[in-house]
Structures are given as C-alpha cells and as structure tokens.
Design a protein around this nucleic acid. Structure first.
Lengths: 153, 153
DNA sequence: CTGATATCATTTGCATACGAATGAATTTGA
DNA sequence: TCAAATTCATTCGTATGCAAATGATATCAG
C-alpha cells in the first residue's frame, strides 16, 4: 500500500466522521436519557408524587406561602404547567389556595398540615433518590458533574 | 463568647444544613432545567420539528428501515410514545410505514425522500444546537461533562 | 403438535410542558 | 390622571412520556 493510499484513507475517514451524525453522542439526547433515568429512580422511591409535584411541595416548605406565579418561577415551570400541578396537589389536600388581599390578581398557595407532613416524610427519600441517581459516579465525579450541569441549567 | 458557644453554633449549623433541603441543589431538579434549556435552544434553531421527532429521523437516516419498536428502543422511547411521534411524522410525509412480510406483528418505518432531504438539511443545525447548549462550558469542561453525563444516562 | 409464553403494536388515562390567546387587575409614564 | 404597558392567572391546543390493558402474532417447551 502506498503512502498516497494511506493519506486518502485518512482524508476519507475524516470526511466520514464529519458527515456522520451520531445521535447517541449529542448532549441533548443524552440529557433526555439521563432525565428519564432520574424520573424512573424517583418513581421507584416515591410512587404517589411526581418530581414536579414534589418540587412544588419542597419549595413551599422552604419559603412558605407564595403566589402561584412566583412558585412557578422558583421551580422552573411556566404558568400553565404550574396551574395543573397545584390543581392536583389541591385536589389531594396537600396545598390550599387563597386570594391575595391587596393584589387581587394573585393566587396565594400554601402547604396544608397534610402537605407539611408529607414533605417532611419525603425529604429523606429524596436524598436517597439523589444518591442513587449519582451512584454511577465517584464522589469527586459527582461534584464535578453537578458544577458543570449547573452551568448549563 | 465561650468555646462551648462556638461548639453549639457549629452543631446547630450542621444540623440546620442536614435538615435543610435545597431543591435547587438536587441533581434531578438541575437535570430537568438543563433539559428544558436544551429544548428551548433546539426550538430556536429548528422550529418545525421537536427533538424526539428529529431523533427519529436522524436514527432512520443512520440505520435505514426498521420496526417501530426497534426504533423506539434506539431513541429511548416506549412503544406508546414512539407511535405518536411516527404518526405525526407520517402525517407530514417525512416517514412511511409498511408491514413486515414475514413477521406480521411488525410495522416497518422508513424515511421518505422528503424525510431524507429534511434530515440532511437539519443535521448542520443540530450541530449548532449542540454547540450552543454546551457554550457555557470550555471545550475541556464539555468533554468532561459529556463523559460523566453518559455514565448517568 | 399445542398450550404457555413472549413480542409487537395499539389504545386509554394521566401528568408534564409550552406557545398563544384572553381577561382581570395593577403599575407606569407622559 | 389616565391611557398604555405590564403582570397574574386561566384556557386551549399540541406534543411528549409512561403505566396498564388488550389483541394479534410468533416462539418455545413438553
């Protein structure tokens, strides 16, 4: 085989690599799969609540009563989505809503005693979920990953 | 202030830290936000297709005709989800389906010429999407991030 | 060969997720 | 002050995403 042949092969290989699009290497696709895996782990530990519902309860537990819109901002949900989440939590008696006395546009949301009891019971499970999600990484890798992930989010 | 006071404060701080659950530090929550950001970037570059629809086209372009179920496995979608995605791509003339000659359970899916033209046109945009998604990271950080993310997915 | 098991696809029901449109209430600015 | 712009919430439409049930077909085991 001549040197020219080798060069030709190399050039063709580079072109093939450039022209080839591998879905499984794209950050968006892997991000979607990692998210799916996390949701699955979450469901295996906490069967009666979804991650968004848990997020709403956890944030209300953290900051106390707030408006539906503000809550949505804090847990990264748009107005339409947060409404559905709050409606379902309300139907289950975990949160209660009331009108803001001064600003009549606002809908205040707060935990009920049942909601408070629920989130206090679930937080230890949530810690286990985080741990299991990160289990494929070493402690050091997990710290690096979280740092970089936060830069992307 | 006595040494005992300092010790008490330290113990209280540690307890507070243990008892405090910060949603915004949990891998699941950040993963969800990073995924949201990616979808948003995707939509800003490719308005007429969703990431799952793009994934289906890209995989069919890569491997050629396959069954609906097999395609679902390759792009990480369950049977119910992939059916909806394929139905919509079919309605737009980007894929076509046919029955497997031997195994009558299987539904074969393939790109149409329009689908092939579309995915060839979109792949350069997809590269830009990946690049923009990873833009907050340096090249080295991005490589590290992708390696760790893949371990989680 | 045939009954049990497994696979492929579909359907239903529920839960995010978001764009766009709408209406009510508030704030701003000329 | 008052019209314009903004904010808060709701509704509608579309698109994942998954569990569970169902039906059709194929494979396996005795």
């Amino acid at each position: 085989m001549s040197g020219e042949d080798n060069l030709l092969r190399l050039v063709e290989a580079e072109e093939a690599d450039e022209n080839n699009y591998h879905l499984q290497d794209q950050v968006g696709f892997i991000l979607r799969k990692a998210h799916q895996r996390h949701v699955s782990i979450f469901a295996s530990h906490i069967a009666d609540l979804t991650p968004p519902q848990f997020a709403a309860l956890a944030k209300l537990y953290d900051i106390g009563e707030t408006s539906q819109n503000q809550l949505g901002t804090l847990i990264a949900m748009d107005a339409a989505t947060v409404k559905g989440v709050i409606d379902r939590l309300k139907a289950r008696g975990l949160v209660e809503v009331s009108k803001h006395e001064v600003d009549k546009r606002r809908l205040l949301v707060n935990l009920t005693p049942e909601g408070r009891e629920a989130i206090e019971r679930l937080i230890p499970l949530a810690r286990a979920i985080t741990e299991e999600t990160l289990a494929p990484l070493t402690t050091k890798e997990a710290a690096t990953f979280l740092r970089l992930l936060a830069k992307l989010a």
